[in-house]
Structures are given as C-alpha cells and as structure tokens.
Amino acid sequence: MAILLFADHDNASLSEHSARALGAALQIGPEVDILIAGQGACAAADAAAALAGVRRVLLAEADPLAERMAEPTAALIVQLAVDYDTILAPATSSGKNVLPRVAALLDVMQISEVTQIVAPDTFKRPIYAGNAIEVVQSTDALRVLTIRSASFAPAATGDGAAPVVAVDPAAAPALSSFGQNLLSVSDRPDLSSARIVVSGGRALGSKQRFEAVINPLADKLGAAVGASRAAVDAGYAANDHQVGQTGKVVAPDLYIACGISGAIQHLAGMKDSRIIVAINSDGEAPIFQVADYGIVGDIFDIVPQMERAL
C-alpha cells in the first residue's frame, strides 16, 4: 500500500528535510504522497510536486494548520491514515511534535529517528546517543516513522509532474493557539543542511569572543555556525545552534570543532560528518578520537590563522 509523508515546510518553501525523508520513503515503496498542511502553502505544495518520485501532493489549508500546531495537524493525518500503511516525517521539531500524537491516536508504536531502511517493516535507529544501533521490526499493521534526514540523500527535483490535490481538514477542537515565532535571522546556511559547519565550545569564553573567532571562519567558508551545549548554556550561541544528542544532528562534508572536548552527547550530533577537524589545546581530548585531522593548539591562535590563510 501507499506511504504518506508529512512534509516540513514554512508555507512559502519546502525544507530540504522533506526531500531527504522522500529519499527514505522511496526505499520503502514507490507510492508516496506528500502532505502539505498549512495556510497559503501553494508554493510549498508546488515545490513538493516537483520532487522526483512523488505520486500526489495533498494540500490541506486552514488557519489552525498555518503553524502546524500538534492537535489539528495530528487530527488531519489521522483522517487521511486509512489509505496508507506507512506514515512518516523528517525528525525535525515539527515532525517530532506531531507524529507521536498521530501514532498514539492510531494505537501504533512509533519508530523514532530511523537511519536505515532494512525492509518495509524493519528499520535501524540509534539508541544511547548513537553508541548502539537498534534493528527493530514493527508488528503493527500501520507504521509510523520519523526519519533522521542527515542519514538519507535528498530525492532529486524533477519537473513538477505530480498532481496537487486539495483535502478538506475536518474541524478539530482548538486546544491551543499560536502566539509568535521568534526565529533567529542569519545570512548563513541552515545548520542542519549546511555543507560545512564550524562549531565552537566552552573554550570560547564569551559571546563576543565566540562571534569574533568562529563567525569570520564560518563566513570565509560559507559555513553554518554550531555550538556545544556548554557554549549554548553559557549564552555564547543561540539555542538552535546546539549540535548533539539533544540538539541538532548534522552530517556535513566538513565539521570543524573548535575548543570542544568531544563528550558523547556532542559526538552523537556530528560523528557522521564526512570529514571532522578538531582544534583543541588538550592533545588527549576525546574529540581527537573521531577527528580525521587534528591540531593541538590554542583556538585563539589557530582559528584566525585559518581564516587568514583561506
């Protein structure tokens, strides 16, 4: 039977996580419909229809869906569920918020953060901060999955052949209401999909020094900026910059860790990067165990040198 992909988007555009989740969905089966739940979301629906391999795009528009609040969005997906045997979403904050609610309403045990499709009912997922990989098989007739997008290549953008079909969301009780989004504005690439990430840790010592040392190198490389939890907790970087088990999971081509010790919770968020560079004054720091290239030295000396030499 068919697969329903609950897409991640902001009405105006489709996030790359959705294309990556489609890559995973197509490994499960060929009949994939993408659900765009939103308001004024035609642009996102058109972008979804242009992806290679999509059967149909379902466009559900209503005011309560504009910000994809959990209660009405879960009700909508449950309403559509009968036609599908797999429902999945990228494991973004939106997917993680909505899908477990859907799973419980359908009495299904969800499988979170899938990193590999073994068979249509069997999946690999990391547990214990990525220190073990669990191979799980679902016994439910319907499967609900969140997909770790860093583990899958995005589906290609085709030529817009899939039809966009409007669906009517049933009225759901208004249990909560949207207030406002306070989004970080930045000209840098998005952390979770950037090709290069430059991350700073506690060693930076202050917000000013973080910005003076990390940002110029990131800008020279066209990179996104990441941070350890210690750096975020100390206020050197914004919350949404945190990389790790409980922050964002990234897998860029190049990850440069500056003054980060390499705690398992941090490694959980970046150890699948293609190339890892570590700069740390302590030659014994655990970060060097996962680094392809390490420099033992002072970040306040090394990082500006790198920036100048590029």
Binding site: V108, M109, I111, T122, K124, P126, I127, G130, N131, A132, I133, E134, V135, V136, Q137, S138, T139, D140, K271, I276, G283, F288, Q289, V290, A291, D292, Y293, G294, I295, V296, I302, Q305, M306, A309
Partner: peptide, 22 residues
C-alpha cells in the same frame, strides 16, 4: 509492538592524524 531483532555496534570511524600547522 516492536521486536528488537538485534543491537549493533555503530560503524567506527577510521582513526585520523594530527597535523603540525594550519
């Protein structure tokens, strides 16, 4: 509802090198 078929070791990264200069 889920059967854990097995639990595996994550794929280890090949060990890297330390370089002497920028």
């Amino acid at each position: 509802r889920l059967t854990v078929l097995r639990v595996e070791e994550p794929v280890a990264r090949a060990s890297g090198i330390k370089v002497g200069s920028v």
